[in-house]
């Protein structure tokens, strides 16, 4: 296993230019800044339509210092498959230098990945393209104005799961994108979180060295969609890990490794109370979410083979 990275290992050179139109406190902005630093400089990015795409490429400006392609909403995985296939054959035919290993990274939001892009993603994973797919998950269609997606968690208010006399926010659980990726028997999947930057570097670096399809699921706090103060992005992200509603881990060669152990969990209520989107929840609903988190923690501990995530601190 590689040496644990620290904040000192982070390259100084910025590869994600400022001046973009992302919100103050945007979690995805932190993610993109560090993902582009962690990636090789000559990697090619294929991006799905979404918040990040529209806020970073307003012609004639761009935040991207990597070669970057956007086609549409549902097809970042298909576009990346095409780029990867082209690089392979052009190298073989001597058009591109054979010694140069240009890496391909696809980036999409939860809507572009869990929902409308799931078919193209499945195709990419199943065909075995040498592509790292990163989904930044802000748990709803934020770019179009906070509509629920397949990644919206139970209880969350969104503009299409509003809180009223009959409805009380989202009533279904979040789709298991990691489980879907693992069902394709891919060599590497991982989760990252903007409050744990060295962990992010370790995982992007590792993914870049592994051949074949990889999926990284990134926790991406959203100020306007989750309804919290812009200064709290990292607090919210850290609290997600401390309560176990988000777990930083990786699955390599069928082995699950929790990269941020949490010996004692905080109650999920402390996470939920930071978000305006959960303000309406009743004690019963919060209890239901706590049970869901407990189950998920037990499942991950079982796969890890030890209690890496501890019990809730009373």
């Amino acid at each position: 296993m590689s040496r644990t990275l620290t904040i000192k290992d982070i390259p100084r050179e910025e590869r994600f230019a400022p001046g973009h139109r992302m919100c103050q406190g945007c979690g995805a902005a932190i993610l993109m800044r560090h993902i582009t630093k962690a990636m090789p400089k000559d990697a090619i990015i294929v991006q799905a339509t979404g918040c990040v795409e529209v806020t970073t490429t307003l012609y004639p400006e761009t935040s991207w210092m990597h070669p970057w392609l956007h086609i549409a909403f549902e097809n970042a995985a298909a576009g990346a498959s095409g780029v990867e296939a082209a690089l392979k054959v052009l190298k073989r035919k001597g058009v591109l230098p054979p010694e140069k290993d240009v890496r391909v990274v696809a980036i999409g939001g939860d809507g572009g990945t869990f929902d409308i892009g799931i078919q193209a993603l499945s195709g990419l994973l199943e065909r075995g393209h040498d592509v790292l797919y990163i989904v930044y998950d802000n748990e709803a269609y934020m770019n179009t104005g906070i509509q629920r997606s397949g990644a919206t968690p139970f209880g969350a208010w969104t503009t299409t799961t509003p809180v009223g006399r009959v409805w009380h926010g989202e009533w279904r659980n979040k789709k298991d994108i990691i489980g879907i990726a693992l069902a394709h028997r891919v060599p590497y999947v991982a989760t990252i979180n903007p409050a744990y930057i060295p962990d992010l570097y370790m995982k992007i670096n590792k993914a870049m060295e592994i051949k074949g399809p990889k999926l990284i699921h990134a926790y991406s706090p959203c100020v306007p969609g989750w309804r919290y103060e812009p200064a709290l992005t990292v607090t919210v992200a850290r609290m997600a890990v401390q309560t176990g509603i988000w777990i930083n881990y990786e699955v390599e060669n069928n082995t699950l490794n929790v990269t941020t152990p949490v010996p004692k969990r905080k109650p999920v209520r402390e996470y939920l109370r930071l978000h305006g989107r959960f303000r309406h929840l009743t004690d019963e609903e919060i209890e239901k979410i706590q049970e869901f988190v407990d189950k998920q923690v037990a499942y991950v501990n079982k796969l890890a083979g030890k209690e890496v995530i501890g019990p809730v601190e009373k």
Binding site: I71, A78, G79, A80, G82, V83, A86
Partner: peptide, 9 residues
Amino acid sequence: SAAVGASAA
């Protein structure tokens, strides 16, 4: 979409 990606590359 893949054709677009490959052509762009």
